[in-house]
């Protein structure tokens, strides 16, 4: 029984399997905005060969009672097949992809390249005065890399938001 007095905020990674039909993403997003829930990250794409189903991964935060409510509200949407709370249901892996543009020359540029090596970021575009790095990993790793680039000419960031799966044999 979730307690209403428990005000501890937790982060939750929720995966939702939905019919791949028009308006379904708007339904999910509208539910979050209409009921005042947070969306920290959101990804969506078809996940079966026929393109019949899409998977939406949402990172949200709130008290346990709010997160239970979010899951129940998602579950009652008509085109929703399954809702899973990856954070609560057991260990899971979550990854995101980021493209990071760094502009600079000289020592800064060399340093950026060195750090990129350490993070196993790939260079996907380069000019004499810029790099675009591609970096995949946990959100914290990408945050750390971006933070380091801030002093080295960070110009622009594009992040995918997370994709997540349960570890082991479990499926949604």
């Amino acid at each position: 029984m979730p307690s209403p007095t428990d005000t501890t905020q937790r982060s939750a990674t929720i995966s939702v399997l939905v019919d791949n039909e028009s308006g379904v993403l708007a339904r999910v997003i509208g539910l979050f905005s209409g009921r005042g829930y947070n969306i920290d990250s959101l990804t969506v794409a078809p996940v079966d060969a026929a393109g019949m189903h899409s998977r939406i991964n949402i990172v949200t935060s709130g008290t346990s009672m709010v997160i239970e409510q979010i899951k129940a509200q998602l579950d009652r949407l008509v085109p929703v097949h399954r809702v899973a709370d990856l954070t609560m249901d057991g260990p899971h892996v979550a990854r995101e992809l980021a493209l990071i543009k760094v502009v600079g020359t000289g020592e800064q540029r060399v340093e950026a390249m060195r750090i990129a090596d350490t993070f196993r970021a790939r260079v996907v575009d380069t000019t004499l005065g810029s790099f675009v790095f591609e970096l995949t990993g946990a959100t914290e790793k990408i945050d750390a890399f971006i933070e380091l680039m801030r002093d080295l000419g960070l110009a622009e960031v594009s992040r995918s938001g997370i994709a997540a799966l349960a570890r082991g044999t479990r499926v949604i």
């Binding site: 029984m1 979730p2 209403p4 009672m65 409510q69 129940a72 509200q73 579950d75 009652r76």
Partner: peptide, 28 residues
């Protein structure tokens, strides 16, 4: 007022809509 609502009771809630349960008042 929710924090004064039926404080001494143990609660059973029948509802066809799971999102109505534990929305405002936690039930056992």
């Amino acid at each position: 007022r929710l924090n004064a609502f039926s404080q001494g009771s143990r609660k059973i809630h029948i509802d066809i809509d799971g999102s109505s349960i534990n929305k405002n008042v936690p039930v056992e």
